[in-house]
């Protein structure tokens, strides 16, 4: 459990400010953390705190201005917030799921890729009957299952999830989070899990980092941070959580 799969050091990223002036907005301002193998690290914070920018940089989708990212695995994959936009509406579901493997397939034939796609669908409990349907025909929850199948197809060691259940109804959310937890154990996946839903993070993540203004203000074991927060901001955030 102590082997590190992802390590980022002193990441920084700024964007051009609105209006085209010279002013730049600092989105991420010196973020460092590591994710151990088999571990789930949660990144929580409010809008504009830099969670998503951090996730994109860790996934290699965005180049940092400075800092280091070390990934000690073979593959990582990303799951996005809006499954409807992450899945091609005009392609058949099995083709979308299998696509990633076409680039990583080695000696696999197209038929074998399809068979693997169907197996991935079983894994995320998306009925094989959906294989020939188009992305647009799927509900939000089914779409998210399909993007998870597409991600696990290529046997990644790390999944970076950016608010993977925020666009879903609460009943669907519970099922998807259950699925992610199951894959964590069955595939030994590690997670970088971005969410604004602290109650959800409390059940899913081993450790949690609280972000504000582009920095991590507090990080530690989930149970410790949530029950004995040290930072004033974490306390404010926890005070605002509404649940049953």
């Amino acid at each position: 459990m102590d082997e590190i799969i992802l390590e980022v050091k002193n990441l920084k990223k700024s964007f051009r400010g609105p209006g085209g002036g010279g002013k730049r907005l600092t989105a991420v301002d010196g973020v460092s953390f590591s994710v151990k193998r088999g571990e789930c690290l949660g990144l929580i914070g409010e809008s504009g705190s830099g969670k998503t920018t951090t996730a994109y940089m860790a996934a290699g989708l965005l180049a940092p201005d400075s800092g280091e990212i070390s990934f000690y695995g073979t593959h990582l994959q990303m799951i996005f917030q809006d499954p409807k936009r992450a899945l091609d509406p005009r392609r058949k579901v099995a083709d979308s799921i299998g696509e990633g493997l076409l680039y990583h397939r080695g000696k696999l034939s197209r038929r074998q890729v399809r068979e693997r796609a169907l197996e991935a669908m079983d894994m995320v409990r998306l009925d094989r009957a959906y294989a020939g349907r188009y992305g647009r025909e799927l509900s939000g929850g089914e779409c998210q299952r399909a993007t998870i199948a597409r991600a696990v197809m290529i046997r990644p060691e790390l999944l970076i999830c950016d608010e993977p259940t925020s666009a879903l109804d609460v009943s669907v959310q519970a099922k998807i989070i259950g699925l992610l937890d199951e894959l964590k154990h069955s595939l030994g996946l590690s997670y970088l899990f971005i969410s604004h839903d602290i109650a959800l993070v409390s059940g899913f993540c081993d450790r949690v980092a609280v972000m504000r203004g582009g920095r991590i203000v507090e990080m530690g074991e989930t149970a410790d941070v949530l029950s004995r927060p040290r930072e004033e901001y974490t306390k404010v955030l926890l005070d605002s959580v509404l649940t049953l």
């Binding site: 009943s171 519970a174 099922k175």
Partner: peptide, 29 residues
């Protein structure tokens, strides 16, 4: 309604709500 619901749907809906108790919400919907 929220703490001792009688309808099956309400029960399932409430079980699916994430809590701050360190457990996963119940997805057996």
């Amino acid at each position: 309604v929220l703490y001792s619901p009688s309808h099956e749907y309400t029960k399932a809906l409430i079980a699916a709500v994430p809590r701050m108790d360190g457990r996963l919400p119940h997805g057996g919907f």
